[in-house]
Design a protein around this nucleic acid. Sequence first.
RNA 1: UGAGGAGUGGUGAAACGGCAUCACGCCUGGCUCUGGACCAGGUUUUCCAGGUUCGAAUCCUGGCUCCUCAGCCA
Length: 573
Amino acid sequence: MPAFESDPRVPGGGEPLDFIREIVKRDKLSGLYGGRVVTRFPPEPNGYLHIGHAKSICLNFGVARDFGGVCHLRFDDTNPETEDMKYVESIMRDVRWLGFDWQDRLFFASDYFEQLYGFAVRLIRDGKAYVDSLNEEEIRRYRGGVTEPGRESPYRGRSVEENLDLFARMRAGEFPDGAHVLRAKCDMAASNMKMRDPLLYRIRHATHYRRGGKWCLYPMYDFAHPLSDAIENVTHSICTLEFENNRAIYDWLLDNLFPSQRPHQYEFARLNLDYTVMSKRKLLALVEEGLVSGWDDPRMPTIAGMRRRGYTPEGIRLFAARIGVDKANSRVSMELLENAIRDDLNALAPRVMAVLRPLKVTITNYPEGKVEWLDAPYWPRDIDKGGSRKVPLSREVVIEQTDFLENPPADWIRLRPGGEVRLRSAYFIRCEEVERDPATGDAVGLRCTYDPDSLGKPAKGARKKTTAVQWVSAAHAVKAEVRLYDRLFSVADPESAGDGKSFTDFLNPGSAEIVRGCLVEPSLAGSSPGERFQFLRHGYFVADEGDSRPGALVFNRIVDLKDRYRKHLGKTD
RNA sequence: UGAGGAGUGGUGAAACGGCAUCACGCCUGGCUCUGGACCAGGUUUUCCAGGUUCGAAUCCUGGCUCCUCAGCCA
């Protein structure tokens, strides 16, 4: 059972809680919010969600679930220049696909513009905000530096009346972009740079994807976010570490405007994954420069990419549960993700036979024209599931090129000249002769004999030390294209490679290997896009949602099987 | 050289003054009609230096290293 349904980390469950849940539990027990727990996932609709967001989604929705609370989906859409409805749609799809439900709690910061404006007016009336007319460059200079205090703007002392008038005219569209901004009156000498009179509003004569041309005055994140949380009665506002310094503004605003039962912000470390990048900017660059096929390229760490790759929501949630939540910056190794995906797929994906790089085998003592339809179970005995299909056997079959070696090492358990191996769910065959390309001398086919008495019988003697290989009847095989995906980058941390190099310099050239001419068993002919299988001894595969259709099958490798032998070979060579 | 955070095996986490634990990885062996899964065993850890204490990953002092902040992005 995936972690989602049976997450043991519930309050009072005895299991250790992460520090966020520890806080929520404390607040729930103390009755701080009357026992209410309200979280929110607040994406900006300006890009696609990625695995890092999945961590946050699992946290926010998971905390709400664990403590009998609710989680809102709120779009933080306060920047008209980058946001778009198409992103809103993709984000909603991705959150749903991950298995979370915000029910009727779908919110948009852009719906709060009028209320937000009212809060700004209140701050001005209270003498806690002012209209600044310095230009961008001047504001930067007045702000000072990390070791130098800032200076107060000459406009800081404007009267409440003048500020009110100016602010109203900013809203009315009387000024061009950048002419004025609204700032909080905090402390220009604050050692926390974020508190040097943070900007609250800026003028943008731009069309907002939801509000159209109604506004030309837009709130900044630091203003809109805490107030949106408060408007929605959020209790625990969970965000990533880079907002730690912003918490001072969060608290300043809410202490001034929502003194009781106000939300509090807590920060956790965002996810970093080896061999990929996680920043929206870099992901966008990969898409725009055509270095990947799109946001849903199966190599992308986006939710859309992982979905197309064939990853399961349960597997991703399991991964999120396993990596935990903490405040220490970290970088998670790919194995953790892949193992979680395998874990889920193991009990989910029926076993079928596919030969990626075929080697022809003629069974010389098998009658010409004879076909046997053999029963092949979909599941190994350790999976508690039944069901099977029929696979045809005939005189000519194909096996994997990598399952035959002329001069194998001592621990080889596959086919060799004079050796035996079982065709999975069928008979033992013995390699009697190697057919060679007269020009190159390469093995191009094998002539084998089969043991008609070995069907369904346990292996004995030397046969016990061999394995059972996948195979497909040549006459019945279905052609397929198989896409073998691998890590997108060839270095663990492409973002900090430095030395004038771009992260794109570290793309893994072998991250998408297309193998055509694969032969799969006939039962796969009708597989529908999105169907997942384990190709025996290869890995987990999914019929590609974009390109696969009956008659032109395309399979994506979701993740390969662990392979101790491959590792072992790598070491002894 | 300001402020705010963070340092526990190879990786991610747990232990909340009392035997450093779990998952992943790696290594052995077993089992297997998948060199998968599963089972058994093993490997490796508290940033440094002092201090308090019967006892410190945990408390105190001082260092070191890393991350974040000087967008009218979020």
